[in-house]
Every structure is written in C-alpha cells, then in structure tokens.
Amino acid sequence: MNDLPQPLQPDAEVIAAQAAVKARGLTNGDVLRQPINDARAATYLYQTFLNEGGPEAEITEHLLPTEPPTPVRIYRPKGVSGVLPVYLHVHGGGFAIGDINTLDRWKREVAASSGAVVVGLQYALSPEYPYPTALDQVMAVLEWLRRDAATLGIDAERMGIGGDSAGGNLALAALLRLRDAHQAMPRFGAINYGMLSSNHGTPSHLELGDGRFGLSTEKLDWFWTQYLGGDASLRTNPDAAPLSAELRGLPPLLLLAAALDPLLDDTLNLDRRLSEAGIPHETKIYQGVPHGFLGQTALLEKARQAQADIVAAIGRYLA
C-alpha cells in the first residue's frame, strides 16, 4: 500500500478514455438527475461499449428459483475440460444499477487468464427490491454452486468470491453470513473499492465526494437510502454495512481501491480492521484512477493491472 501523498488528478490515460467514451455519445447514468430507468438505460449502453471485444468463453445461462428469480451466467474458459475452481463476482452499481451483462468482458477475461470458472449473477435492484433481497440472492447462488458443483463441473472446495463497489459489500456480507452460520466458506475474497459503510464524514468523502471524479457523496447517500428502504437504523447493521461487523474468522482478502474515490476510506478502514482482527490480507491503492475503473480493461492499463491482481489471487488460493 502506498501511503505517500499523491496528486489529486486523473492519469492521462483516464482523461483519454473519458474522451473516447464521450466521442461515442455515452455516459454513465445519473440517478440524481434522471428517472432511475433512464439512468439504468444510459449506464447499460456505456457498459455495452466496455464489453466490446475480449476473449471468448463457454457460457451457460441459468435461472435460480428464488424470489424474485436470480439469473446466473457461468463463464468457462474456452476449450478447458475437467473440474475447475470457481470464482463468483458480484457486480456494483449502488445496489440500484447493473444486470447480468455488467462486466461481461471482464469476466470472460478473468476466466481466460485464470483457467477458473467465473460466475456472475443479476441480483434484484433497489429501490424496487431493498435490502436484504440482493444479499439473499448472493447466498442462494453460493449454496447452488456448492450443491450442484458436480453437475456444473466445478470444485466447490476451490471457490472464491469477490465484488466491486456495492458488489464488494455483498461479497463481504456473504462471507460474514457464512461465518456466522458456521458454513463452509470460499477460500478467499476480493473486495474492490467496496461500498462498505454509510459514514460519509471520512476524509476521502470530504476531499473527493464533490463528484468531480464521477462518484459523489450525494449519489452514495441516495444509493444507501434506496438500498435500505429509507430505514436509517440499518445504516449501522453489520449485515447491510459490513464495515461495522466483527471481522474475525474470515478467509484471506484482497482489497483493491481507487485513489480518486470517495469510497477510498472504506477500503483503508477495512484494511486497518482486518489487521486488528488478524485476518491475512493484501491492499493495493491505484493512483490516478476513479471509482469504477476495474471494468475498463480495454482502455486503462491500471484496470488490467488490477484484474491481474485478482487473477493472481485466484491462482494463489484456488490452485
């Protein structure tokens, strides 16, 4: 982890990527200025652009009979047979945006690079489906992967879980639920710029929360309000805001964060609390990039580096 002061400005590559996106007439949706369905539609067009190209994978689609039903997509490395390790990645989007296609290229790339089966899901979004629906769906997918591992050609004993932003929250909360239920846990977790706490008075919020790098404190507060159904008492519930949970008994964790992100202190505080709890973990802060950079592997070298960190963790813990 780099503790030296860094300039609060995006890399030249980030600026060029933003220009390329703008030239295509694309933008992330803005939940503060658009109806939620319009914000989702704009974001999905932007994500379609990010998903262009990349390696092929052997893809199968499934629908779990939860309430509401949970679409699941399995990415198997092209031409690789046998029983493989499995990595479940939970997408971000403030619990309010995202679908089965979010990070599609990224998941194909991870499958090809790691030799593992990669799994994505489409959890139900808030405000239509507030907490705990999305987390319940993640738990259902984990249970299904273990129960049907033989049919799916995966090794349930070699499982990892990760997520980005709100997905990082759901991944960490799922690990905590498994621990508390004394159930078998994945061998590691990857928490990428996780949306882990509704405390918006941290230094990174105060310095970076004005929205000039994309994500703002105002948006995050909106996301939390929708996710929790307006119930302010849930903002410190460990199941909903896992940074407030007791962290002992977790598997090793990889923490990745963006330096130009109001959520940076969520990662730094998780790093500190994991150290206090004696949990093995590694933390990397990527300078010069904003929240959401992980999926821009077609545009940003640092996105490719962060992806390589996750692939390395898959190899290290699931070999």
Rank of each mutant, 00 (worst) to 15 (best):
H281W: 06
G278S: 02
H89E: 12
G288L: 04
V118G: 10
G295A: 09
N2M: 08
G120T: 10
Y87V: 14
R316K: 12
T225P: 11
L250Q: 04
F95K: 02
H182R: 13
A173L: 12
L318G: 11
L103N: 11
G29D: 04
V31S: 09
L294Q: 07
L176H: 01
G278V: 06
G93S: 03
Q307H: 08
V83K: 08
A134H: 01
L103C: 10
T236E: 10
P35R: 02
A319F: 02
D3Q: 07
Q18D: 13
P130W: 01
D38W: 03
S216L: 06
G82A: 10
N269R: 12
L125V: 10
G120P: 09
Y129L: 13
E276N: 05
D266M: 09
F223K: 01
G211N: 05
V86K: 02
R146I: 12
R108Q: 08
Q34W: 08
P280M: 04
Y87F: 15
A156F: 04
A166H: 01
D155S: 12
V118C: 13
V138M: 05
A245C: 13
T133K: 06
V86N: 00
I36N: 06
L135V: 09
E246T: 14
V138R: 01
V80Y: 03
A190V: 11
V311C: 07
N199D: 15
G82M: 06
P65N: 01
F293C: 09
G163M: 05
M139D: 09
S244I: 04
L263F: 05
A184P: 15
F49W: 13
A96T: 14
E109S: 15
R158Q: 12
N37L: 14
G29T: 08
L268I: 06
R187V: 11
H200N: 14
S126K: 01
D266L: 11
D164G: 15
R76T: 13
R212K: 12
R212Q: 11
L88R: 03
L208M: 04
A149R: 00
L142T: 08
A313V: 05
N199S: 12
V21M: 11
A134V: 09
A166V: 10
A258N: 06
Q305A: 15
T43F: 06
G249D: 03
R24W: 05
L250T: 07
E282L: 14
I285A: 03
R235Y: 09
H91E: 07
N169H: 06
G214Y: 01
L4M: 09
S198Q: 00
T102V: 10
L300D: 04
P130E: 02
D155Q: 03
I314Q: 03
D164A: 14
E246F: 04
E61M: 13
I36S: 09
L254G: 07
L255A: 04
